Amino acid sequence: MINIPTRRAANPSVYRKVFLVSTKSKIAADLNTPTDLAADGVEKVTKALNGLVADAFALYLKTKNFHWHISGRHFRDYHLLLDEHADQIFATTDPLAERVRKIGGRTVHSIGEIAKLQSVKDNNEDYVPPVEMLHELMDDNKKMAAALRKAHKICDDADDVASASLLENYIDETERRTWFLFEASRQEGANEK
């Protein structure tokens, strides 16, 4: 721990403590939330959860993109389904990011950082047929479920029961989205024949 002056104060001996974290980033004492978790566990959980936050934002935007650009006979059903899925995905971002902060970690700060961390691939095509949209989102949700399970193991290994518990609900929700997308894509594929 080192002390550095922060700003001019009535008492010039006022200093703010800055903690050096193993990731070599500096966390001001005001942001260094106390935790009983081991420092290396906090670092691993933080990295895993930040990856999930980035993927959730990427998957949210991809789902909204497809929601906005869906077409065809089942427009209304798919439009509403994808809107529901997007809302559910977006609802995970704040609790995941806050979990990082609760254990003293630093969470994502920007779209640029999300872009660096995301494993969900963007889709910038002008047109994607509905069945391809559903298949792509189904695959992305399957990968997200796998990432959630991997993060769950990291949380278990770090004795972070609260983060692991949070992830269990998200695994179930992600599997439900995968199921719905699978069934909808089968129906869409059958209708195209």
Rank of each mutant, 00 (worst) to 15 (best):
M1E: 15
I2H: 12
I2P: 12
I4W: 08
R7K: 15
R7P: 07
A9F: 12
A9M: 02
N11V: 03
N11R: 00
N11E: 03
P12I: 13
S13A: 15
V14P: 08
V14W: 14
K17A: 12
V18K: 00
L20P: 00
V21D: 01
S25W: 07
K26R: 08
I27D: 00
A28N: 13
A28Q: 04
D30M: 07
D30E: 12
D30Q: 14
L31Q: 06
T33Q: 09
P34N: 10
P34G: 07
D36C: 10
L37N: 06
A38D: 04
A38H: 09
E43L: 14
V45T: 01
T46F: 00
T46I: 03
K47I: 09
A48R: 01
N50L: 14
G51E: 02
L52F: 05
V53A: 05
D55E: 04
A56E: 05
F57Q: 07
A58E: 04
L61M: 10
K64I: 11
N65E: 05
H67G: 10
W68Q: 10
W68L: 07
H69L: 05
I70Y: 14
S71H: 13
G72M: 06
F75K: 12
Y78A: 15
H79I: 13
H85N: 05
H85Y: 12
D87A: 10
D87C: 07
F90R: 04
T93Q: 06
T93M: 07
D94F: 04
L96N: 02
L96I: 11
E98V: 06
E98A: 08
V100M: 00
R101M: 09
R101E: 05
K102G: 11
I103W: 02
R106Y: 10
V108W: 09
G112S: 09
E113F: 11
I114A: 08
I114W: 04
K116N: 06
V120A: 08
V120S: 02
D122I: 10
D122M: 06
N123L: 09
N123K: 05
E125Y: 01
D126V: 15
V128P: 04
P129R: 14
V131T: 07
V131H: 11
V131W: 07
V131N: 09
M133H: 00
E136D: 02
D140Y: 00
D140F: 01
K142C: 06
M144K: 03
R149H: 13
R149K: 15
R149C: 13
A151I: 03
H152N: 13
D156S: 12
D156C: 10
D157Q: 05
D159R: 11
V161K: 15
S163V: 11
A164T: 08
L166H: 03
N169E: 11
N169H: 09
Y170S: 13
D172L: 15
T174V: 00
E175Y: 01
W179R: 08
F180I: 06
F180D: 01
L181V: 01
S185P: 05
S185N: 04
S185R: 03
R186D: 09
G189E: 09
N191I: 09
E192L: 15
E192D: 12
